[in-house]
Design a protein around this nucleic acid. Structure first.
Length: 337
DNA sequence: CGGGTTTGACCGGCGC
DNA sequence: GCGCCGGTCAAACCCG
């Protein structure tokens, strides 16, 4: 994966989100502090919960993203996007077993609070407007802190898409997800006074796949396609087909590594269950609606355990399963085989 | 016929 | 102000 091209797609700051500390892919696993003095987390959820500042600020950057492989580069900044990027790269296809150095990913995100200081100053007023707009849009909100809400929404989105990719891995017999550079910024910086459209939180995935449009359980309608500058591969625009659901997603292929698909989600689904899901998920959805939360966990275990074990994932990947309480129920159902 | 895709046109933001 | 570019629209088309 080349950083230069992706740098045009994703914003970079010095923040590095180390996936190995999440998944304990490094030998020795998470214990105390790592070499950079960073706290280690027993799992993804711990990481989220222990980080009240989802910006993963500069201390994390002391240790470069620990991917093995010379193709890894850190992306440059994209000045405009307001995206939370999770990069997930599946090593190889078929029944290939994942190894750490067979997966390469590169992505980054931006966070409003982590822009360069001068830009922050410039955008301070604008961001204040954004906050005001957010309040207007949310309307009936009870006045809770907007940033906290945004972080919560972003965290939920991130978790959803993380697991979406996990299930995609399983479904497609791919390998591993690597996460890094998880940042939270939900406010648009490009909004004109009065009537700029509001940007939803965005997450971008990089997925090694031969299929452009990965099944994620939701139904999407393609509403546009654009040629991407400096890339032979077009970018496709999709909208969730469910009425009143404003979630969009962009799908494009990295031109320097055509095997990698970059999927960017924007917004959050407003419906509990994917409408008209292809396949046989309706029954599961109905079942789920009357099931206690504990069942969801078991469902996940049943779903994920065999393939993930086959993929030699770290033992504490079960931590991810604990995230199911934060996952949209439809996601669970929609990814049943 | 309904729903999804394609594709050229259009619009708005942004940098110069 | 102008041009570039990303994002969206909508008519035409396709398909089951």
């Amino acid at each position: 994966m080349s950083g230069e091209k992706l740098g045009e797609l994703f914003h970079h700051d010095s923040t590095i989100f180390d996936p190995y500390s999440l998944f304990s892919l490094r030998s020795g696993g998470p214990q105390g502090l790592d070499q950079s003095g960073l706290p280690q987390f027993s799992g993804f959820l711990d990481y989220l919960q222990s980080s009240t500042d989802f910006g993963f600020t500069s201390s994390l950057s002391q240790e470069p993203f620990g991917l093995i492989g010379d193709r890894h580069k850190v992306c440059k900044a994209e000045p405009r996007a307001t995206e939370n990027v999770i990069s997930s790269v599946f090593a190889g296809g078929g029944t290939r077993t994942m190894t750490a150095n067979s997966s390469v990913s590169s992505s980054s995100t931006e966070a409003a609070g982590e822009e360069e200081s001068d830009k922050n100053e410039k955008n301070e007023e604008k961001e204040q407007e954004d906050e005001d707009e957010n309040k207007d849009v949310k309307g009936a909100d009870d006045g809770a802190d907007e940033d906290e809400k945004a972080k919560t929404v972003s965290a939920n989105l991130m978790v959803q898409f993380c697991l979406i990719n996990f299930l995609c891995v399983w479904r497609n017999c791919f390998a591993l997800i690597l996460l890094k550079n998880l940042l939270f910024a939900t406010r648009s910086k490009s909004r004109k006074k009065g009537e700029k459209r509001q940007r939803q939180p965005r997450f971008a995935f990089m997925t090694k796949s031969e299929v452009d449009h990965l099944e994620d359980g939701y139904r999407w309608r393609k509403y546009g396609q654009k040629a991407v500058k400096n890339s032979p591969y077009p970018r496709s625009y999709y909208r969730c087909t469910t009425q009143k659901c404003l979630v969009k997603k962009r799908v494009e292929r990295s031109y320097e590594d055509p095997s990698i698909v970059i999927t960017t989600y924007e917004g959050q689904h407003t419906h509990h269950y994917p409408s008209n899901v292809r396949g046989s998920s309706h029954m599961l959805a109905n079942q789920q609606s009357s099931m206690p939360p504990s069942f969801h966990h078991e469902l996940f275990l049943q779903t994920l355990t065999p393939p993930l074990q086959q993929l030699n994932l770290p033992a504490n990947y079960h931590d991810l399963l604990l995230l199911q309480n934060s996952i949209h129920p439809s996601f669970i159902n929609s990814n049943q085989p």
